[in-house]
Amino acid sequence: MISVSSCSIASAISIPLGSLVHFNRFRGKRPLISVIQTLYSVPTVVIGLFVFLMFSRAGPLGELKLLFTPAVMIIGQVALIIPLILGLIISALSGIDKAVAETAISLGATRFQMVMLILKEAKFAVLAAIIMGFGRAFSEVGLALMVGGNIRGFTRTLTTTISLETSKGDVELSIALGIILLMIALAINITLNRLQQR
């Protein structure tokens, strides 16, 4: 649930932002893309530490009292996967033949219509980017442990449960949960693929 919300939020931010970056020329575009791509591999615990310090009561956003709640886990995951989705969307858009955009403009399309057309052309790759982002949010454990605190019945996710149960030596339960986790991932991917083929 948490990773579904964070993935939707991240995609909703990344799709317009990615188009914005792709369709505009500005100084520092290449460095910006390099930074985004570097952030693909930012360790979850680094984001976790950052979010922890921001939202701890002694931190700048401590007044919100969000630490150790599902909300802060969503915020952390959004921060974690935006670079991934954004970067992949930018490269998805770059993969579309420039002629498409030029033709659309010459046929009298407005700029907005042109952007929409390119997005539509690139929809498979955009969807793939979203699936990647979901996968990262769904599978990560470091961030969830650090800012969620693994509170039973509140901020405990499948991955943090596996971590806890393994550390308690209950390997059977962990394996079962791992299988469930894979099944859910499979179901979501099949659904998204169906959507893709339509």
């Binding site: 919300s5 939020i9 969503i74």
Partner: peptide, 25 residues
């Protein structure tokens, strides 16, 4: 194109409701 526009609007709504949800929490 209309379809895509609607999709974008929906995704924006998701953001808005997501933000609202975080606000409630």
């Amino acid at each position: 194109i209309l379809g895509i526009v609607i999709a974008v609007i929906i995704s924006l709504l998701v953001v808005a409701s997501g933000c609202a949800a975080t606000g409630n929490q």
